[in-house]
């Protein structure tokens, strides 16, 4: 980075070593691989239950003018939701522990690492873990015959974007937590997102309340993954990408600032 740029960007915001944080996590999770593996099963169970139970009851749903079976309709949404949940999981409880209890961020900031390095590294790690789940979920979808074309692979970058957005939001939210009891807020906030982001029924079902659904970042993620799976691309996808990217960038910047304010008083 040029000296000129360094003058404009505050030192706390310089991102140079986020991969050091990720390296630490890879080493730490070598001992806890079972925890990593377990994250794959929750969305899988959801998918199987939807397929076995609701699928027959509901029949087909219209997506982009096409009729698709219910399980093919709901699978991309579950994939998007699991990207959200994984990212939130990694960026809240674990971050709270490192921030307030083991205080390893304090230790990291005593080195040349910057607050932005720490925040970016944590969010990057959440992304990597989320991608592993997304890949395995996609494999299962393909095995169950729920994918339509190679376009389905585009669900992976879509999930990466969802992961980025929610990891940044989760990290930002965690910097405001006072202790473990505040962790309850996480479920309180993500549960409605999971249920009301055009996840289980199309947005048309929400009628005049559709605009509320559109406020949910997950809604935009679900729309992207669904489009990828159907291979139906419209200009509105650019809008979804723009919303998620904007939320992610704002949240990431604020998160690094909060970390700076918290740990470098």
């Amino acid at each position: 980075m040029s000296a000129g740029l360094l003058r404009i960007i505050p030192p706390a915001m310089v991102v140079r070593r986020p991969h050091r944080m990720i390296e630490r996590h890879i080493v730490a999770y070598r001992r806890q691989w079972l925890i990593v593996v377990s994250g794959f099963f929750e969305p899988l169970f959801y998918l199987l239950s939807m397929r076995a139970g609701l699928g027959d009851l509901v029949g087909t749903v219209s997506v982009g003018g096409r009729e698709v079976p219910y399980d093919a309709f709901v699978a991309p949404a579950l994939m998007a939701s699991s990207a959200m949940n994984g990212a939130i999981f990694d960026s809240t409880g674990n971050v709270l522990h490192r921030l307030k209890y083991s205080r390893i961020y304090d230790a990291a900031l005593a080195t040349p690492m910057s607050p932005a390095d720490v925040a970016t590294g944590e969010i990057g790690w959440a992304l990597i873990r989320g991608q592993l789940y997304a890949i395995s979920f996609l494999v299962v979808m393909a095995a169950l015959g729920l994918t339509n074309s190679w376009w389905s692979l585009m669900a992976l970058p879509a999930c990466a974007l969802i992961g980025l957005t929610f990891a940044a939001l989760g990290f930002l939210g965690t910097t405001f937590m006072r202790g473990w009891s505040d962790m309850d807020m996480v479920t309180t906030l993500t549960m409605p997102l999971f249920l009301f982001s055009a996840t289980f029924f199309p947005i048309s079902a929400y009628g005049s309340w559709a605009w509320v659904v559109q406020l949910s970042p997950l809604y935009h993620g679900v729309a992207l993954v669904r489009a990828a799976n159907e291979g139906v691309w419209t200009a509105s996808m650019l809008g979804h990408v723009a919303v998620l990217t904007a939320v992610a960038l704002v949240a990431l910047t604020l998160a690094a600032r909060r970390l700076d304010a918290l740990l470098r008083k």
Partner: peptide, 29 residues
Amino acid sequence: RARIGVVPQLDTLDTELSVQENLWLYGRF
């Protein structure tokens, strides 16, 4: 910071890592 070492008042050791991992991963920072 690259040229100083800090021993904080309260330990900020990484409780999820082993003793030697605490050292070599810190060196990576």
